[in-house]
């Protein structure tokens, strides 16, 4: 089993790279061969990554959240799974090149630095934690995808405004679709983050001796949640549309990445298990 884990860690970045390359070739050159290779490669990559996360959880008897590198791989996995679901649901494959860049980068860093943590805190073996963590990471995956759609929206918006009718104009879906996809992903992300925060706030003070409301990650997550809450309110109540809401979505994403990486690495707190 350890061999299988090592194999996945080695192969996954290459598989992600191959998938992105094929998506990029189809997007930029319209290659028919690349177009037909997209779906099989994506499904292979997503299945292998999901398998890797499951095997790793079983072999080490804890969810892969004990180090920033395990977390990066878990986020990469949730992004690729959520994206695969979106692609199968909508049939729109043009945005894959941009979205899959993120899991590739996350998995590459994870594969290079990941190592087994010997001492596992007992809290990590709790099943309620699985619920808390999976909703949090699915939420992060959703807002990541929302941000990528936001980024694509801003690129297309810029190109149309400035009369640049290149490959972005030609291949991306229209502005309204991009805005709708970004909004749907944001709503999913917001609901999942809400669940993660509520479960965490109710259960963690009882489960952890060193629980503190002054935890930097708790602050970070609530700040992200607030940004999205404001964004959703602005859209629904004030009627914000298009560019502004997309910029807000990207700001929320930047804060989420800051919370996951920088806070995890440089600040202490009960969320740190290594």
């Amino acid at each position: 089993m350890h061999f299988l884990i090592g194999f996945c860690e080695l192969v996954l970045p290459f598989l992600y790279f191959a998938t992105i390359w094929v998506y990029g070739k189809a997007f930029f050159s319209g290659s028919k061969g690349a177009e037909s290779a997209k779906a099989p490669l994506l499904l292979t990559t997503a299945s292998l990554h999901a398998g890797y996360v499951i095997i790793r959880t079983i072999v080490f008897s804890h969810p892969p959240i004990t180090s920033v590198f395990e977390i990066l791989s878990l986020i990469a996995c949730t992004i690729v799974l959520v994206y695969t679901y979106i692609e199968l649901r909508t049939g729109n494959t043009a945005t894959g090149y941009f979205i899959l860049m993120l899991p590739f980068f996350f998995q590459l860093v994870s594969s290079i630095f990941i190592k087994e943590v010997r001492e596992i805190p007992p809290i990590l073996r709790s099943s309620l934690l699985g619920f808390h963590v999976s909703s949090a990471f699915l939420g992060y995956a959703a807002i990541t995808i929302s941000a990528v759609y936001g980024f694509l929206y801003l690129m297309l918006y810029h190109d149309i405004k400035s009369s640049q009718f290149g490959v972005i104009y030609k291949r991306l879906p229209n502005l309204e679709i991009l805005e709708r996809m970004s909004f749907t992903a944001t709503v999913f992300g917001f609901v999942l983050l809400t669940i993660a925060i509520v479960v965490g706030l109710i259960w963690l003070p009882r489960a952890l001796e060193n629980f503190s409301y002054a935890d930097p990650k708790l602050f970070g997550t609530i700040a992200i949640w607030l940004i999205y809450a404001i964004g959703l309110m602005a859209k629904k109540v004030i009627g914000w549309q298009g560019k502004r809401i997309m910029v807000l979505s990207m700001f929320g994403f930047a804060l989420a990445m800051f919370s996951i990486t920088i806070i995890n690495m440089f600040f202490g707190g009960f969320h740190k298990f290594y």
Binding site: I160, N174, L175, E176
Partner: peptide
Amino acid sequence: ELASKIFED
């Protein structure tokens, strides 16, 4: 065509 790049429906 440009209108179809802005509006979905």
